[in-house]
Computed example of a mutant assay.
Amino acid sequence: MEIILYLSNGYPTLENSYQTAIEYADAGCRIMEVDFPSRNPYLEGQYIADRMAKALEACDDYEKYMESMVKMKKLLPEVHFLVLAYENTVEEIGTEHFIEFCKENDFKDVLLVGLKGEIIKNQIIESGLKVSCYVQFHMLPEEIESAKASNGFVYMQAKPNGNINPDFPTLKDCIKHLRDCGIERPIYCGVGIHAPKDVKMAKEAGADAAFVGSTILKLHEDVPAMKGMIRKFKAQC
């Protein structure tokens, strides 16, 4: 069991996010979700969307983001990086160039969001990279089928937002059903992981890792407090 910390790449500058990755690792984080900030992050809340916008104000050259990611990976070989990218960003970078970058630098796991269709996702999968899939807590049949057909980790919603499937009322029930469906790939839980006790809950439910986002992001300006909080989350793994 691990925690996954979100790294706002380029916020407020590329150098700052690079240093944040170092602090994350020093506090014990071994999986990081690093983004390519999108020019149209329409699925994000205002907090993350604003961070992406400010990152692009500071640097709008995606080649520089790639260079920073490679630098992070070389410095932190013990860390596994997950790459978050909107489809519109992949299109701007160029799908083939994006795939080449990920493969050459061993960024094997991609969270591809904001899909307009299946073409780019299928290109990435066919290249040998792994694309994650999202399953909501109320366990929609079509999302379960998508998870079964995918080749990447399953991003499982950790807590309900009002909708609960009576057949799978708890996170443990949801994860068990995914396993019973034959899914052997990692199941990472997110959306609702705000306190260390939530990591413990995800672990007891059978998750392989838990995404921790805004709780840590909001402590970035107080590094000692941030690292102390990371260690509290990590202690529940």
Score class of each variant (00 low, 15 high):
residue 122 N to E: 15
residue 122 N to M: 11
residue 122 N to H: 13
residue 124 I to S: 10
residue 125 I to Y: 05
residue 125 I to F: 03
residue 126 E to K: 15
residue 128 G to C: 14
residue 129 L to S: 09
residue 129 L to F: 13
residue 130 K to W: 02
residue 130 K to G: 05
residue 132 S to G: 15
residue 132 S to T: 15
residue 132 S to R: 01
residue 133 C to Q: 10
residue 135 V to W: 04
residue 135 V to Q: 08
residue 135 V to H: 09
residue 137 F to W: 10
residue 137 F to I: 03
residue 138 H to T: 06
residue 140 L to R: 15
residue 140 L to W: 08
residue 140 L to S: 07
residue 141 P to D: 15
residue 141 P to C: 11
residue 142 E to H: 15
residue 143 E to H: 14
residue 143 E to G: 09
residue 143 E to L: 10
residue 145 E to N: 14
residue 145 E to A: 14
residue 146 S to E: 15
residue 146 S to V: 08
residue 146 S to Y: 06
residue 147 A to N: 12
residue 147 A to K: 01
residue 147 A to P: 06
residue 148 K to S: 13
residue 148 K to V: 15
residue 148 K to Q: 15
residue 149 A to S: 15
residue 149 A to C: 13
residue 149 A to W: 08
residue 151 N to Y: 13
residue 151 N to G: 11
residue 151 N to W: 12
residue 152 G to E: 13
residue 152 G to N: 12
residue 153 F to C: 07
residue 154 V to G: 10
residue 154 V to P: 06
residue 155 Y to P: 06
residue 157 Q to A: 10
residue 158 A to V: 05
residue 158 A to F: 12
residue 158 A to Y: 04
residue 160 P to Y: 05
residue 160 P to L: 05
residue 161 N to W: 07
residue 161 N to M: 09
residue 163 N to T: 00
residue 164 I to P: 11
residue 166 P to C: 09
residue 166 P to Q: 10
residue 166 P to E: 11
residue 167 D to V: 02
residue 167 D to P: 03
residue 168 F to G: 08
residue 169 P to S: 11
residue 169 P to K: 11
residue 169 P to Y: 09
residue 170 T to G: 11
residue 170 T to C: 10
residue 170 T to F: 11
residue 171 L to T: 02
residue 172 K to H: 11
residue 173 D to C: 04
residue 176 K to L: 12
residue 177 H to G: 04
residue 178 L to N: 03
residue 179 R to M: 01
residue 180 D to N: 13
residue 180 D to L: 12
residue 180 D to W: 05
residue 181 C to R: 13
residue 181 C to N: 10
residue 181 C to W: 05
residue 182 G to D: 07
residue 182 G to I: 12
residue 184 E to H: 11
residue 185 R to E: 08
residue 185 R to N: 08
residue 185 R to M: 09
residue 186 P to T: 08
residue 186 P to C: 09
residue 187 I to H: 00
residue 187 I to V: 13
residue 188 Y to A: 00
residue 189 C to S: 07
residue 189 C to Q: 02
residue 189 C to V: 12
residue 192 G to C: 04
residue 192 G to N: 04
residue 193 I to K: 01
residue 193 I to Q: 01
residue 193 I to T: 04
residue 194 H to K: 07
residue 195 A to I: 07
residue 195 A to Q: 12
residue 196 P to I: 00
residue 196 P to K: 00
residue 196 P to S: 01
residue 197 K to N: 05
residue 198 D to S: 03
residue 198 D to L: 01
residue 199 V to A: 04
residue 200 K to P: 00
residue 200 K to W: 00
residue 201 M to T: 05
residue 203 K to Y: 06
